[in-house]
Design a protein around this nucleic acid. Structure first.
Lengths: 254, 254
DNA sequence: CGTTGCATTGAGTGTTGTCAAGCTCTGTGG
DNA sequence: CCACAGAGCTTGACAACACTCAATGCAACG
Protein backbone atom coordinates (compact mmCIF):
# COMPACT_ATOMS: atom_id res chain seq x y z
CA UNK A 1 0.00 0.00 0.00
CA UNK A 2 2.96 2.33 -0.34
CA UNK A 3 2.34 3.07 -3.97
CA UNK A 4 1.12 6.60 -4.48
CA UNK A 5 -1.29 5.40 -7.12
CA UNK A 6 -3.28 3.51 -4.58
CA UNK A 7 -5.42 6.49 -3.76
CA UNK A 8 -5.17 8.12 -7.14
CA UNK A 9 -8.88 8.20 -7.70
CA UNK A 10 -9.61 10.13 -4.57
CA UNK A 11 -9.59 13.70 -3.49
CA UNK A 12 -5.96 14.71 -3.20
CA UNK A 13 -6.50 16.50 0.09
CA UNK A 14 -7.19 13.16 1.73
CA UNK A 15 -4.24 11.26 0.33
CA UNK A 16 -1.94 11.97 3.20
CA UNK A 17 -4.56 11.21 5.82
CA UNK A 18 -5.34 7.92 4.12
CA UNK A 19 -1.73 6.87 4.03
CA UNK A 20 -1.32 7.77 7.67
CA UNK A 21 -4.49 5.89 8.55
CA UNK A 22 -3.24 2.84 6.70
CA UNK A 23 -0.01 2.83 8.68
CA UNK A 24 -1.75 3.42 11.97
CA UNK A 25 -4.20 0.61 11.46
CA UNK A 26 -1.49 -1.78 10.43
CA UNK A 27 0.34 -0.78 13.57
CA UNK A 28 -2.44 -1.16 16.11
CA UNK A 29 -3.42 -4.47 14.58
CA UNK A 30 -0.01 -5.97 14.40
CA UNK A 31 -0.21 -7.46 17.87
CA UNK A 32 -2.86 -10.00 16.93
CA UNK A 33 -1.96 -12.29 14.04
CA UNK A 34 -3.61 -15.45 12.85
CA UNK A 35 -2.79 -17.91 10.08
CA UNK A 36 -5.14 -19.99 7.95
CA UNK A 37 -4.56 -22.80 5.48
CA UNK A 38 -5.97 -22.63 1.98
CA UNK A 39 -9.65 -23.55 2.08
CA UNK A 40 -10.14 -22.72 5.74
CA UNK A 41 -12.93 -20.48 6.86
CA UNK A 42 -11.81 -17.18 8.40
CA UNK A 43 -15.31 -15.93 9.19
CA UNK A 44 -18.28 -18.24 9.25
CA UNK A 45 -21.64 -17.41 7.71
CA UNK A 46 -24.24 -16.22 10.19
CA UNK A 47 -21.91 -15.90 13.15
CA UNK A 48 -21.68 -12.90 15.37
CA UNK A 49 -18.37 -11.24 14.92
CA UNK A 50 -16.18 -9.17 17.07
CA UNK A 51 -13.24 -8.45 14.87
CA UNK A 52 -12.06 -6.35 12.00
CA UNK A 53 -9.33 -7.96 9.92
CA UNK A 54 -6.42 -6.86 7.82
CA UNK A 55 -5.07 -9.32 5.30
CA UNK A 56 -1.30 -9.44 5.46
CA UNK A 57 -0.40 -12.22 3.04
CA UNK A 58 -2.41 -14.48 0.74
CA UNK A 59 -5.80 -14.23 -0.93
CA UNK A 60 -9.22 -14.48 0.68
CA UNK A 61 -12.79 -14.35 -0.61
CA UNK A 62 -16.20 -13.43 0.67
CA UNK A 63 -18.55 -16.25 -0.33
CA UNK A 64 -22.30 -16.63 -0.10
CA UNK A 65 -23.39 -20.26 -0.09
CA UNK A 66 -26.96 -20.89 -1.14
CA UNK A 67 -29.29 -23.49 0.34
CA UNK A 68 -29.12 -25.61 -2.84
CA UNK A 69 -25.33 -25.75 -2.81
CA UNK A 70 -24.56 -23.09 -5.38
CA UNK A 71 -22.05 -20.51 -4.22
CA UNK A 72 -21.23 -16.96 -5.24
CA UNK A 73 -17.93 -15.31 -4.50
CA UNK A 74 -18.81 -11.70 -3.82
CA UNK A 75 -15.41 -10.15 -3.36
CA UNK A 76 -11.75 -11.08 -3.41
CA UNK A 77 -9.40 -9.70 -0.78
CA UNK A 78 -5.73 -9.17 -1.53
CA UNK A 79 -2.88 -8.32 0.86
CA UNK A 80 -3.39 -4.95 2.53
CA UNK A 81 -7.18 -5.05 2.38
CA UNK A 82 -9.27 -4.59 5.49
CA UNK A 83 -12.31 -6.78 5.81
CA UNK A 84 -15.29 -7.13 8.11
CA UNK A 85 -15.13 -3.39 8.71
CA UNK A 86 -18.86 -3.90 8.88
CA UNK A 87 -18.39 -5.60 12.25
CA UNK A 88 -18.39 -2.09 13.60
CA UNK A 89 -22.02 -1.64 12.73
CA UNK A 90 -23.55 -5.04 11.98
CA UNK A 91 -24.17 -7.82 14.43
CA UNK A 92 -24.08 -10.81 12.10
CA UNK A 93 -22.09 -11.73 9.04
CA UNK A 94 -24.30 -12.79 6.18
CA UNK A 95 -21.38 -14.33 4.34
CA UNK A 96 -18.41 -16.53 4.91
CA UNK A 97 -14.84 -15.39 4.34
CA UNK A 98 -12.53 -18.18 3.23
CA UNK A 99 -8.81 -18.39 2.62
CA UNK A 100 -8.10 -19.03 -1.06
CA UNK A 101 -4.42 -19.60 -0.40
CA UNK A 102 -2.53 -19.90 2.86
CA UNK A 103 -3.18 -16.65 4.62
CA UNK A 104 -1.93 -14.57 7.49
CA UNK A 105 -4.02 -11.76 8.81
CA UNK A 106 -4.18 -9.37 11.68
CA UNK A 107 -7.34 -8.66 13.61
CA UNK A 108 -8.67 -6.30 16.21
CA UNK A 109 -11.74 -6.13 18.39
CA UNK A 110 -14.20 -3.91 16.60
CA UNK A 111 -14.77 -1.85 19.76
CA UNK A 112 -11.10 -0.98 19.92
CA UNK A 113 -11.07 0.00 16.28
CA UNK A 114 -14.24 1.97 16.83
CA UNK A 115 -12.66 4.01 19.59
CA UNK A 116 -9.54 4.55 17.51
CA UNK A 117 -11.96 5.48 14.72
CA UNK A 118 -13.59 8.10 16.92
CA UNK A 119 -10.35 9.57 18.18
CA UNK A 120 -8.35 9.62 14.99
CA UNK A 121 -9.85 10.93 11.79
CA UNK A 122 -7.05 9.32 9.77
CA UNK A 123 -8.22 5.93 10.92
CA UNK A 124 -11.85 6.81 10.30
CA UNK A 125 -10.99 7.91 6.80
CA UNK A 126 -9.01 4.79 6.07
CA UNK A 127 -11.94 2.61 7.12
CA UNK A 128 -14.36 4.66 5.12
CA UNK A 129 -12.06 4.49 2.16
CA UNK A 130 -11.89 0.71 2.35
CA UNK A 131 -15.66 0.51 2.30
CA UNK A 132 -15.89 2.92 -0.62
CA UNK A 133 -13.20 1.28 -2.65
CA UNK A 134 -14.94 -2.03 -2.15
CA UNK A 135 -18.14 -0.42 -3.23
CA UNK A 136 -16.50 0.80 -6.39
CA UNK A 137 -15.37 -2.73 -7.16
CA UNK A 138 -18.82 -4.07 -6.36
CA UNK A 139 -20.34 -1.59 -8.80
CA UNK A 140 -17.93 -2.70 -11.48
CA UNK A 141 -18.69 -6.28 -10.73
CA UNK A 142 -22.42 -5.74 -11.01
CA UNK A 143 -21.93 -4.21 -14.44
CA UNK A 144 -19.77 -7.15 -15.34
CA UNK A 145 -22.29 -9.75 -14.18
CA UNK A 146 -25.28 -7.86 -15.53
CA UNK A 147 -23.99 -6.95 -18.97
CA UNK A 148 -20.91 -8.98 -19.72
CA UNK A 149 -20.63 -12.35 -21.42
CA UNK A 150 -18.20 -14.99 -20.21
CA UNK A 151 -15.26 -13.62 -22.22
CA UNK A 152 -15.73 -10.10 -20.98
CA UNK A 153 -16.04 -11.19 -17.38
CA UNK A 154 -12.91 -13.29 -17.44
CA UNK A 155 -10.85 -10.56 -19.09
CA UNK A 156 -12.18 -8.05 -16.58
CA UNK A 157 -11.28 -10.35 -13.69
CA UNK A 158 -7.73 -10.87 -14.87
CA UNK A 159 -7.17 -7.17 -15.44
CA UNK A 160 -8.60 -6.31 -12.04
CA UNK A 161 -6.22 -8.69 -10.33
CA UNK A 162 -3.28 -7.33 -12.27
CA UNK A 163 -4.22 -3.75 -11.49
CA UNK A 164 -4.78 -4.30 -7.80
CA UNK A 165 -1.60 -6.28 -7.32
CA UNK A 166 0.41 -3.69 -9.21
CA UNK A 167 -1.06 -0.76 -7.34
CA UNK A 168 -0.54 -2.39 -3.96
CA UNK A 169 3.11 -2.87 -4.76
CA UNK A 170 2.88 -6.66 -4.60
CA UNK A 171 4.00 -6.87 -8.23
CA UNK A 172 6.78 -5.26 -10.16
CA UNK A 173 5.37 -2.52 -12.37
CA UNK A 174 6.02 -4.28 -15.64
CA UNK A 175 5.28 -7.80 -14.54
CA UNK A 176 2.35 -9.57 -16.18
CA UNK A 177 2.59 -12.74 -14.21
CA UNK A 178 1.15 -13.44 -10.79
CA UNK A 179 0.02 -16.22 -8.54
CA UNK A 180 -3.70 -16.80 -8.92
CA UNK A 181 -4.71 -19.17 -6.14
CA UNK A 182 -8.14 -20.11 -7.41
CA UNK A 183 -9.51 -23.27 -8.95
CA UNK A 184 -11.62 -22.99 -12.07
CA UNK A 185 -14.61 -23.85 -9.93
CA UNK A 186 -13.90 -20.84 -7.71
CA UNK A 187 -13.50 -18.63 -10.75
CA UNK A 188 -16.86 -19.85 -11.93
CA UNK A 189 -18.38 -18.97 -8.58
CA UNK A 190 -16.88 -15.52 -8.83
CA UNK A 191 -17.89 -14.96 -12.44
CA UNK A 192 -21.34 -16.47 -12.26
CA UNK A 193 -20.60 -19.10 -14.91
CA UNK A 194 -20.01 -22.83 -14.72
CA UNK A 195 -16.68 -24.52 -14.27
CA UNK A 196 -17.01 -26.13 -17.66
CA UNK A 197 -17.48 -22.81 -19.35
CA UNK A 198 -14.60 -21.18 -17.48
CA UNK A 199 -12.48 -23.98 -18.78
CA UNK A 200 -13.58 -23.46 -22.38
CA UNK A 201 -12.79 -19.76 -22.28
CA UNK A 202 -9.42 -20.25 -20.59
CA UNK A 203 -8.59 -22.85 -23.19
CA UNK A 204 -9.29 -20.38 -25.97
CA UNK A 205 -7.26 -17.65 -24.28
CA UNK A 206 -4.39 -20.10 -24.07
CA UNK A 207 -4.69 -21.10 -27.74
CA UNK A 208 -4.86 -17.47 -28.81
CA UNK A 209 -1.81 -16.71 -26.66
CA UNK A 210 -3.73 -14.04 -24.78
CA UNK A 211 -3.31 -15.44 -21.30
CA UNK A 212 -2.16 -18.66 -19.74
CA UNK A 213 -3.75 -19.68 -16.45
CA UNK A 214 -2.28 -22.89 -15.20
CA UNK A 215 -1.12 -24.39 -11.96
CA UNK A 216 -2.23 -21.42 -9.89
CA UNK A 217 -0.24 -18.95 -11.98
CA UNK A 218 -1.59 -16.41 -14.44
CA UNK A 219 0.51 -15.03 -17.28
CA UNK A 220 -1.15 -12.22 -19.18
CA UNK A 221 0.60 -12.46 -22.51
CA UNK A 222 -1.43 -9.96 -24.47
CA UNK A 223 -2.73 -7.16 -22.32
CA UNK A 224 -4.10 -5.25 -25.28
CA UNK A 225 -6.23 -8.16 -26.34
CA UNK A 226 -7.52 -8.59 -22.80
CA UNK A 227 -8.38 -4.92 -22.65
CA UNK A 228 -10.23 -5.14 -25.90
CA UNK A 229 -12.17 -8.08 -24.58
CA UNK A 230 -13.04 -6.27 -21.36
CA UNK A 231 -13.51 -2.84 -22.90
CA UNK A 232 -17.28 -2.95 -23.32
CA UNK A 233 -17.86 -3.43 -19.61
CA UNK A 234 -14.85 -1.61 -18.22
CA UNK A 235 -15.05 1.03 -15.52
CA UNK A 236 -14.44 4.30 -17.37
CA UNK A 237 -11.72 5.29 -14.90
CA UNK A 238 -9.89 2.02 -15.02
CA UNK A 239 -8.46 2.84 -18.41
CA UNK A 240 -6.67 5.96 -17.22
CA UNK A 241 -5.01 4.49 -14.21
CA UNK A 242 -1.25 4.74 -14.20
CA UNK A 243 0.59 1.47 -14.59
CA UNK A 244 -2.50 -0.06 -16.05
CA UNK A 245 -2.88 1.27 -19.53
CA UNK A 246 -0.30 3.29 -21.39
CA UNK A 247 1.83 3.26 -24.49
CA UNK A 248 4.15 0.60 -23.19
CA UNK A 249 1.27 -1.86 -23.05
CA UNK A 250 0.63 -1.59 -26.71
CA UNK A 251 4.29 -2.04 -27.54
CA UNK A 252 4.63 -5.01 -25.27
CA UNK A 253 2.06 -6.92 -27.25
CA UNK A 254 3.68 -7.01 -30.64
CA UNK B 1 -37.00 6.11 8.39
CA UNK B 2 -38.98 6.27 11.62
CA UNK B 3 -39.64 2.57 11.69
CA UNK B 4 -37.67 0.85 14.39
CA UNK B 5 -37.02 -2.08 12.07
CA UNK B 6 -34.92 0.04 9.83
CA UNK B 7 -31.77 -0.69 11.75
CA UNK B 8 -32.83 -4.07 13.00
CA UNK B 9 -29.84 -5.84 11.55
CA UNK B 10 -27.34 -3.72 13.34
CA UNK B 11 -25.72 -3.65 16.69
CA UNK B 12 -28.35 -2.43 19.12
CA UNK B 13 -25.97 -0.06 20.85
CA UNK B 14 -25.84 2.04 17.70
CA UNK B 15 -29.55 2.23 17.02
CA UNK B 16 -30.12 5.42 18.91
CA UNK B 17 -27.10 7.12 17.43
CA UNK B 18 -28.21 6.16 13.93
CA UNK B 19 -31.65 7.52 14.44
CA UNK B 20 -30.23 10.74 15.83
CA UNK B 21 -27.82 10.97 12.91
CA UNK B 22 -30.63 10.46 10.45
CA UNK B 23 -32.59 13.33 11.94
CA UNK B 24 -29.60 15.62 12.14
CA UNK B 25 -28.63 15.05 8.52
CA UNK B 26 -32.17 15.62 7.34
CA UNK B 27 -32.13 18.82 9.32
CA UNK B 28 -28.86 20.30 8.13
CA UNK B 29 -29.73 19.41 4.56
CA UNK B 30 -33.19 20.77 4.55
CA UNK B 31 -32.12 24.23 3.48
CA UNK B 32 -31.10 23.15 0.02
CA UNK B 33 -33.78 21.39 -2.00
CA UNK B 34 -33.89 20.56 -5.68
CA UNK B 35 -36.51 18.95 -7.87
CA UNK B 36 -36.06 16.76 -10.94
CA UNK B 37 -38.48 15.40 -13.50
CA UNK B 38 -38.63 11.71 -14.31
CA UNK B 39 -35.76 10.83 -16.63
CA UNK B 40 -33.61 13.79 -15.68
CA UNK B 41 -30.02 13.31 -14.63
CA UNK B 42 -29.26 14.25 -11.03
CA UNK B 43 -25.56 13.49 -11.21
CA UNK B 44 -23.77 13.15 -14.51
CA UNK B 45 -21.24 10.43 -15.28
CA UNK B 46 -17.62 11.50 -14.98
CA UNK B 47 -18.34 14.87 -13.45
CA UNK B 48 -16.64 16.22 -10.38
CA UNK B 49 -19.10 16.47 -7.59
CA UNK B 50 -19.40 18.62 -4.56
CA UNK B 51 -22.58 17.43 -2.97
CA UNK B 52 -24.04 14.67 -0.91
CA UNK B 53 -27.74 14.11 -1.49
CA UNK B 54 -30.70 12.87 0.47
CA UNK B 55 -33.68 11.65 -1.49
CA UNK B 56 -36.87 13.08 -0.07
CA UNK B 57 -39.53 11.89 -2.51
CA UNK B 58 -39.49 9.72 -5.61
CA UNK B 59 -37.20 7.01 -6.93
CA UNK B 60 -33.70 7.39 -8.35
CA UNK B 61 -31.13 5.00 -9.82
CA UNK B 62 -27.40 4.80 -10.21
CA UNK B 63 -26.73 3.84 -13.84
CA UNK B 64 -23.56 2.90 -15.66
CA UNK B 65 -23.84 3.50 -19.39
CA UNK B 66 -21.43 1.52 -21.52
CA UNK B 67 -19.71 2.77 -24.66
CA UNK B 68 -21.81 0.49 -26.88
CA UNK B 69 -25.06 1.78 -25.45
CA UNK B 70 -25.88 -0.98 -23.00
CA UNK B 71 -26.71 0.25 -19.52
CA UNK B 72 -26.67 -1.31 -16.09
CA UNK B 73 -28.64 0.02 -13.16
CA UNK B 74 -26.43 -0.57 -10.17
CA UNK B 75 -28.62 0.58 -7.34
CA UNK B 76 -32.08 1.97 -6.72
CA UNK B 77 -32.56 4.80 -4.23
CA UNK B 78 -35.82 5.18 -2.36
CA UNK B 79 -37.00 8.09 -0.19
CA UNK B 80 -34.80 8.58 2.86
CA UNK B 81 -31.64 7.22 1.22
CA UNK B 82 -28.46 9.24 1.14
CA UNK B 83 -26.48 9.08 -2.05
CA UNK B 84 -23.11 10.27 -3.33
CA UNK B 85 -21.76 9.90 0.20
CA UNK B 86 -18.68 8.96 -1.74
CA UNK B 87 -18.29 12.60 -2.75
CA UNK B 88 -16.57 12.92 0.59
CA UNK B 89 -13.68 10.86 -0.57
CA UNK B 90 -13.81 10.52 -4.36
CA UNK B 91 -13.21 13.23 -6.86
CA UNK B 92 -15.22 11.94 -9.79
CA UNK B 93 -18.44 10.03 -10.14
CA UNK B 94 -18.05 6.97 -12.32
CA UNK B 95 -21.80 6.67 -12.73
CA UNK B 96 -24.83 8.72 -13.46
CA UNK B 97 -27.73 9.09 -11.05
CA UNK B 98 -31.07 9.57 -12.77
CA UNK B 99 -34.56 10.28 -11.52
CA UNK B 100 -36.86 7.35 -12.23
CA UNK B 101 -39.93 9.32 -11.20
CA UNK B 102 -40.31 12.97 -10.36
CA UNK B 103 -37.98 13.52 -7.47
CA UNK B 104 -37.20 16.02 -4.78
CA UNK B 105 -33.95 15.81 -2.93
CA UNK B 106 -31.87 17.78 -0.50
CA UNK B 107 -28.18 18.28 -0.91
CA UNK B 108 -25.22 19.60 0.97
CA UNK B 109 -21.65 20.54 0.11
CA UNK B 110 -19.54 17.52 0.94
CA UNK B 111 -17.10 19.68 2.91
CA UNK B 112 -19.87 20.83 5.20
CA UNK B 113 -21.04 17.29 5.71
CA UNK B 114 -17.46 16.24 6.26
CA UNK B 115 -17.01 18.73 9.06
CA UNK B 116 -20.34 17.74 10.58
CA UNK B 117 -19.09 14.18 10.16
CA UNK B 118 -15.92 14.98 12.09
CA UNK B 119 -17.67 16.81 14.88
CA UNK B 120 -20.66 14.59 15.41
CA UNK B 121 -20.25 10.86 15.66
CA UNK B 122 -23.99 10.36 15.11
CA UNK B 123 -23.67 11.87 11.69
CA UNK B 124 -20.54 9.88 10.94
CA UNK B 125 -22.31 6.70 11.94
CA UNK B 126 -25.33 7.50 9.81
CA UNK B 127 -23.13 8.03 6.75
CA UNK B 128 -21.20 4.89 7.43
CA UNK B 129 -24.42 3.00 7.90
CA UNK B 130 -25.74 4.19 4.55
CA UNK B 131 -22.63 2.93 2.86
CA UNK B 132 -22.80 -0.40 4.65
CA UNK B 133 -26.47 -0.94 4.02
CA UNK B 134 -25.86 -0.24 0.36
CA UNK B 135 -23.04 -2.69 0.42
CA UNK B 136 -25.32 -5.34 1.85
CA UNK B 137 -27.75 -4.76 -0.99
CA UNK B 138 -24.94 -4.83 -3.51
CA UNK B 139 -23.80 -8.18 -2.15
CA UNK B 140 -27.30 -9.55 -2.47
CA UNK B 141 -27.52 -8.19 -5.95
CA UNK B 142 -24.29 -9.83 -6.99
CA UNK B 143 -25.58 -13.17 -5.79
CA UNK B 144 -28.76 -12.51 -7.69
CA UNK B 145 -27.00 -11.62 -10.94
CA UNK B 146 -24.38 -14.32 -10.60
CA UNK B 147 -26.55 -17.26 -9.62
CA UNK B 148 -30.15 -16.40 -10.33
CA UNK B 149 -32.20 -16.97 -13.47
CA UNK B 150 -34.66 -14.39 -14.73
CA UNK B 151 -37.53 -15.61 -12.54
CA UNK B 152 -35.46 -15.55 -9.38
CA UNK B 153 -34.11 -12.09 -10.11
CA UNK B 154 -37.50 -10.57 -10.76
CA UNK B 155 -39.00 -12.11 -7.63
CA UNK B 156 -36.04 -10.90 -5.61
CA UNK B 157 -36.38 -7.40 -7.01
CA UNK B 158 -40.07 -7.16 -6.19
CA UNK B 159 -39.55 -8.44 -2.66
CA UNK B 160 -36.66 -6.06 -2.09
CA UNK B 161 -38.79 -3.10 -3.10
CA UNK B 162 -41.65 -4.22 -0.89
CA UNK B 163 -39.35 -4.76 2.07
CA UNK B 164 -37.57 -1.44 1.75
CA UNK B 165 -40.73 0.55 1.28
CA UNK B 166 -42.37 -1.16 4.24
CA UNK B 167 -39.38 -0.68 6.51
CA UNK B 168 -39.02 2.96 5.60
CA UNK B 169 -42.61 3.58 6.56
CA UNK B 170 -43.59 4.61 3.05
CA UNK B 171 -46.05 1.74 2.89
CA UNK B 172 -48.68 0.48 5.30
CA UNK B 173 -47.48 -2.71 6.95
CA UNK B 174 -49.95 -4.98 5.26
CA UNK B 175 -50.03 -3.35 1.88
CA UNK B 176 -48.77 -5.36 -1.08
CA UNK B 177 -49.22 -2.67 -3.66
CA UNK B 178 -46.82 0.14 -4.48
CA UNK B 179 -45.87 2.53 -7.21
CA UNK B 180 -43.05 1.09 -9.30
CA UNK B 181 -41.86 3.89 -11.55
CA UNK B 182 -39.73 1.84 -13.93
CA UNK B 183 -40.21 0.80 -17.51
CA UNK B 184 -39.60 -2.81 -18.46
CA UNK B 185 -36.46 -1.63 -20.19
CA UNK B 186 -35.18 -0.15 -16.94
CA UNK B 187 -36.03 -3.34 -15.09
CA UNK B 188 -34.05 -5.22 -17.69
CA UNK B 189 -31.11 -2.91 -17.12
CA UNK B 190 -31.35 -3.52 -13.41
CA UNK B 191 -31.76 -7.28 -13.73
CA UNK B 192 -29.25 -7.87 -16.46
CA UNK B 193 -31.81 -9.32 -18.86
CA UNK B 194 -33.45 -7.99 -21.99
CA UNK B 195 -36.69 -6.03 -22.13
CA UNK B 196 -38.32 -8.80 -24.11
CA UNK B 197 -37.50 -11.35 -21.50
CA UNK B 198 -38.66 -9.15 -18.63
CA UNK B 199 -41.93 -8.86 -20.45
CA UNK B 200 -42.31 -12.60 -20.84
CA UNK B 201 -41.69 -13.28 -17.15
CA UNK B 202 -44.04 -10.50 -16.04
CA UNK B 203 -46.67 -11.91 -18.35
CA UNK B 204 -46.35 -15.30 -16.71
CA UNK B 205 -46.51 -13.81 -13.20
CA UNK B 206 -49.68 -12.04 -14.24
CA UNK B 207 -51.23 -15.20 -15.67
CA UNK B 208 -50.31 -17.16 -12.56
CA UNK B 209 -51.81 -14.40 -10.41
CA UNK B 210 -48.52 -14.02 -8.54
CA UNK B 211 -47.93 -10.36 -9.27
CA UNK B 212 -49.34 -7.72 -11.58
CA UNK B 213 -47.00 -5.00 -12.76
CA UNK B 214 -48.79 -2.54 -14.95
CA UNK B 215 -48.98 1.17 -15.48
CA UNK B 216 -46.21 1.92 -13.01
CA UNK B 217 -47.93 0.04 -10.18
CA UNK B 218 -46.93 -3.31 -8.70
CA UNK B 219 -49.42 -5.55 -6.92
CA UNK B 220 -47.87 -8.54 -5.24
CA UNK B 221 -50.79 -10.93 -5.11
CA UNK B 222 -49.02 -14.02 -3.87
CA UNK B 223 -46.10 -13.22 -1.63
CA UNK B 224 -45.50 -16.85 -0.75
CA UNK B 225 -45.08 -17.78 -4.39
CA UNK B 226 -42.68 -14.88 -4.89
CA UNK B 227 -40.67 -15.96 -1.88
CA UNK B 228 -40.49 -19.48 -3.20
CA UNK B 229 -39.26 -18.16 -6.51
CA UNK B 230 -36.62 -16.00 -4.86
CA UNK B 231 -35.71 -18.44 -2.09
CA UNK B 232 -32.70 -20.03 -3.79
CA UNK B 233 -30.87 -16.71 -4.01
CA UNK B 234 -32.27 -14.94 -1.00
CA UNK B 235 -30.14 -13.20 1.62
CA UNK B 236 -30.33 -15.53 4.64
CA UNK B 237 -31.28 -12.63 6.90
CA UNK B 238 -33.99 -11.28 4.66
CA UNK B 239 -36.33 -14.08 5.65
CA UNK B 240 -36.31 -13.17 9.33
CA UNK B 241 -36.95 -9.50 8.94
CA UNK B 242 -40.07 -8.28 10.62
CA UNK B 243 -42.85 -7.23 8.32
CA UNK B 244 -41.33 -9.26 5.57
CA UNK B 245 -41.93 -12.88 6.33
CA UNK B 246 -44.23 -14.14 9.03
CA UNK B 247 -47.26 -16.31 9.52
CA UNK B 248 -49.63 -13.72 8.16
CA UNK B 249 -47.95 -13.87 4.78
CA UNK B 250 -48.75 -17.49 4.36
CA UNK B 251 -52.33 -16.95 5.36
CA UNK B 252 -52.74 -14.01 3.07
CA UNK B 253 -52.01 -16.13 0.06
CA UNK B 254 -54.82 -18.61 0.21
C1' DC C 1 -55.15 11.33 -36.67
C1' DG C 2 -49.98 10.97 -36.81
C1' DT C 3 -46.41 10.38 -33.68
C1' DT C 4 -43.99 8.67 -29.90
C1' DG C 5 -42.89 5.68 -26.12
C1' DC C 6 -43.79 1.53 -24.10
C1' DA C 7 -45.67 -3.18 -23.96
C1' DT C 8 -46.49 -7.54 -26.25
C1' DT C 9 -45.80 -11.47 -29.15
C1' DG C 10 -43.59 -14.84 -32.46
C1' DA C 11 -39.86 -17.26 -34.85
C1' DG C 12 -35.31 -18.49 -35.06
C1' DT C 13 -30.58 -18.40 -32.98
C1' DG C 14 -26.77 -18.96 -29.85
C1' DT C 15 -24.32 -18.63 -25.68
C1' DT C 16 -24.12 -21.05 -21.77
C1' DG C 17 -25.59 -24.89 -18.81
C1' DT C 18 -26.00 -29.98 -18.03
C1' DC C 19 -24.41 -34.45 -17.94
C1' DA C 20 -20.99 -37.59 -18.34
C1' DA C 21 -16.66 -39.39 -19.30
C1' DG C 22 -11.78 -39.30 -19.48
C1' DC C 23 -7.43 -37.07 -18.44
C1' DT C 24 -3.39 -35.23 -15.65
C1' DC C 25 -1.05 -34.52 -11.76
C1' DT C 26 0.21 -35.20 -7.07
C1' DG C 27 0.60 -37.42 -2.81
C1' DT C 28 0.35 -41.71 -0.32
C1' DG C 29 0.93 -46.28 1.06
C1' DG C 30 2.07 -50.95 -0.11
C1' DC D 1 8.93 -48.25 -7.50
C1' DC D 2 4.34 -48.93 -8.52
C1' DA D 3 -0.70 -48.79 -7.69
C1' DC D 4 -4.18 -46.15 -6.16
C1' DA D 5 -7.07 -42.33 -4.86
C1' DG D 6 -8.54 -37.78 -5.14
C1' DA D 7 -8.72 -33.22 -6.78
C1' DG D 8 -8.86 -30.53 -10.45
C1' DC D 9 -8.76 -29.99 -15.46
C1' DT D 10 -10.45 -31.10 -20.21
C1' DT D 11 -13.59 -32.46 -23.68
C1' DG D 12 -17.89 -33.82 -26.21
C1' DA D 13 -22.82 -34.21 -27.07
C1' DC D 14 -27.00 -32.31 -26.15
C1' DA D 15 -30.50 -29.20 -24.07
C1' DA D 16 -32.32 -24.87 -22.53
C1' DC D 17 -32.71 -20.33 -21.15
C1' DA D 18 -32.33 -16.09 -22.75
C1' DC D 19 -31.13 -13.09 -26.84
C1' DT D 20 -32.02 -11.06 -31.47
C1' DC D 21 -34.79 -9.37 -34.85
C1' DA D 22 -38.99 -7.91 -36.28
C1' DA D 23 -43.71 -6.90 -36.24
C1' DT D 24 -47.81 -5.43 -33.92
C1' DG D 25 -50.67 -3.40 -30.27
C1' DC D 26 -51.83 0.25 -27.37
C1' DA D 27 -52.32 4.50 -24.96
C1' DA D 28 -51.10 9.34 -24.31
C1' DC D 29 -50.33 13.53 -26.49
C1' DG D 30 -49.93 17.28 -29.66
Amino acid sequence: MQDSNTFALHRPEFDEALRRGDGKIAQIMTTQTRAFRAGESIIRQGTEHEFVYRLRTGWAARVRTLPDGRAQIILIFLPGDLFAVKSMAMALHPDEVIALSDVTCEHLDYRKLKSAFDQDSDIALRCLWQVMEEERRLHNWIVSLGQGNADERIAQMLLEFLGRLTRSGALADRSREFRLPMTQEQMGNLLGITTVHVNRVLKRLREEKTAVIRGGVAQLLNITALKQMAAPIQDPFERDEPGNSNASDKQATA
